[in-house]
Design a protein around this nucleic acid. Structure first.
Lengths: 199, 199
DNA sequence: AACCATACTTACCACATGGTAAGCTGTCAA
DNA sequence: TTGACAGCTTACCATGTGGTAAGTATGGTT
């Protein structure tokens, strides 16, 4: 039983990485299984279909993002917009080390219409709702409606995600060394952007 | 000859739309040809391979984005950071009506590592360079280095792209009517973000 | 000892994929 | 009039795809 759970977890882990790197259509279930000492039928045994596996991966990512966002919030002392700023920076730092989450997030935004709509399941919703709640809680006066809150936090999320996802591109353009420099300076830039957007 | 050029153009047009919507792996050359009164072999006759077709699509997008960015710049009167602000807003308005360009841009950022690197061609580079030049030209004092310029403009590009690409997601979450409201208010939000980021 | 469910594997399969080969048809230059 | 070539089509193919069917091995339950 626990061995089975472990196998499942291994599949989920590899699948998450590959889906993030290559996208849903760019990743075959055989390719996932090939990185583990199992056949693709073992994968199908555990998850039923590629679509369901992808669903579990997305749900996992969404859950983790939510948890991490809330952890970032709870680790932040103080209240109001400066607390929100700290929380978002903390969240950014978390994302920094786990680029695949950002990649999957963006892929899902892009593919949503064609893939998830047909399955009619909307995995990222809880995370986005948690984001709204965070903004409203930190600054109820600034963010009257859900939409107003989301639109602002969304801008910031967009800015940081876009940057994180662009690592290959920027490394290629400026060289890896220069990219590391860029990245180390980015956090401060982001902080400024955040404080101005919500202040 | 001109008929052939027309056929090519038709292929490019459909291919651009489908690649943007479904990604490289999610789009088969047969699917592209099926939307036109030709067979997929006609497509291969004109472009040689799927990869080359995709390359031409990307090059087309990159060229158009560059041209439009420069047109936006030239349409802007004045100088300095407020001119840059106007230019970027103008550029945003252009993108607003042509979501597929934004989608392709982001897909290429995501897939770059796995697809384009192997082909070793980096199609979006001219556009990004043009973006850097724009920023440096508008505010040479603020943006000392290429990297410093890019990192800031990049944030803004990220914020607007992210929002544009999220239409399906946000429509689904808030309903289409609410989304239209969100979107109509977004330009002003973006303007504020821009002016603060570069001011 | 018989049963049974879980965790897998091997063997298959129908179908879609990108791509090749070869031919057909019209146009246009020599 | 012939030849060549551009712009297609039909025929075909090897490979990869997600998925099914039918097992085998193992460990726990009665």
């Amino acid at each position: 039983m626990s061995e089975a759970a472990d196998t499942r977890q291994q599949f989920l882990s590899v699948a998450t990485r590959l889906f993030a790197e290559r996208g849903f259509y760019g990743t075959s279930i055989a390719a996932i299984a090939d990185e583990l000492p199992y056949t693709k039928q073992a994968l199908l045994h555990h998850f039923g279909s590629k679509e369901k596996l992808y669903g579990e991966v997305l749900k996992g990512i969404s859950d983790q993002l939510m948890t991490e966002l809330e952890a970032a919030r709870d680790a932040t002392s103080g209240e109001g917009s400066s607390a929100l700023e700290d929380t978002l920076i903390r969240f950014y730092r978390l994302l920094e080390g786990q680029t695949h989450k950002t990649q999957l997030l963006m892929r899902e935004l892009l593919d949503n219409k064609h893939r998830a709509t047909s399955a009619n399941v909307w995995y990222l919703r809880p995370f986005l709702e948690s984001l709204i709640a965070l903004a409203k809680q930190a600054s109820p006066s600034t963010f009257a409606s859900d939409a107003q809150a989301l639109i602002t936090v969304y801008q910031l999320l967009g800015a940081m995600n876009y940057f994180l996802v662009s690592e290959p591109t920027l490394s290629q353009m400026f060289g890896e060394e220069m990219y590391r420099e860029l990245r180390s300076g980015y956090e401060e830039k982001l902080r400024v952007l955040i404080s101005q957007a919500i202040g």
